[in-house]
Design a protein around this nucleic acid. Structure first.
Length: 252
DNA sequence: AAGGTTTCCAACCGCATTCCT
DNA sequence: GAGGAATGCGGTTGGAAACCT
């Protein structure tokens, strides 16, 4: 069903303000709209989205065009499930930029997305909300609680790293998409604080930087064919559950 | 097979920030 | 420097697809 809404197109060209009232289309993009937008951006480049909306012939707002391009049409956009390595990074980076300890509560999804080439902030946000928050709910604790964050960082994360390492060694082709030495991101247990505290941020930064360093120059997501099932597997959920219940009285 | 429920993700919205005149 | 337009962000929603009964 096509949805149109009365809207304004307002742009300024060479100092002249042009304002026009017309029907603005909303909802799912059609293939035709996609190719129109693609063709226009290929020819004129990104940016000036209101002009794109007006001159491409699309009955869409600039905002809508921008979003469609950035989240879907851009050639760099990567598709498919979030891999284990990406999960690992998201969890770690979210602990730095996505919690209340952060000095910059804004910009977190886009900041995290910067470290996952080809992934959009929208995608990461969706992943976090649908997968991580769902698991927190299953485990009957708040996703932002220190208990859940600790469990994710100090119990789930090392297991993820272990799985990644195992997968690397089991992979016959040896195609692994970040770093040459998976072991170099192994968690050093001595670095782990006993419970949630400011040192958690320091620890996370260290791990994230370590991963980031490896990603520089070799483009760990840049072209690897490595792919594996990356959803929250029952084994990991069970393990997390055990940790949460075992530590119930220990963790503040 | 049909109807109901859940999951997932593309797209929208409102607000904040940045840019431009 | 001020004001308005453009852009970018996080939060939220709606609907298609998948799953369950």
């Amino acid at each position: 069903m096509e949805v149109y809404e009365r809207g304004f197109f307002s742009i300024s060209e060479s100092g002249h303000q042009i304002e026009e009232v017309m029907d603005v289309r909303k909802g799912q993009w059609t293939e035709e709209e996609d190719s129109m937008l693609k063709a226009y951006v290929t020819l004129h480049g990104e940016g000036r989205w209101n002009s794109v909306a007006r001159f491409s012939g699309l009955r869409r707002t600039g905002k809508s065009c921008r979003l469609r391009w950035l989240n879907y049409l851009r050639p760099a956009v990567r598709r498919g499930s979030i891999t284990l390595e990406e999960q690992l990074l998201i969890i770690q980076l979210h602990s730095i930029w996505g919690n209340s300890l952060s000095m910059e509560p804004c910009l977190r999804w886009s900041k995290i997305a910067e470290h996952l080439p080809g992934r959009t902030d929208n995608e990461i946000k969706n992943y976090w909300r649908t997968k991580v928050q769902k698991q927190a709910k299953k485990l009957e604790c708040d996703v932002n609680s220190p208990k859940f964050r600790d469990a994710l960082l100090y119990e789930y994360t090392p297991r993820l790293i272990e799985q990644i390492s195992r997968a690397k060694h089991e992979s016959p082709s040896g195609q692994f998409t970040y770093g040459n030495e998976t072991e170099s991101v192994q968690v050093d247990q001595s670095l782990l604080p006993e419970s949630s505290s400011e040192t958690q941020v320091t620890y996370c930064s260290t791990v994230a930087e370590s991963i980031d360093e490896q990603s520089n120059g070799n483009g760990w997501l840049g072209g690897g064919d490595y792919w594996m099932e990356s959803e929250w597997c029952e084994e990991n959920i069970w393990f997390l559950q055990q940790q949460l219940y075992d530590d119930e009285d220990d963790v503040i």
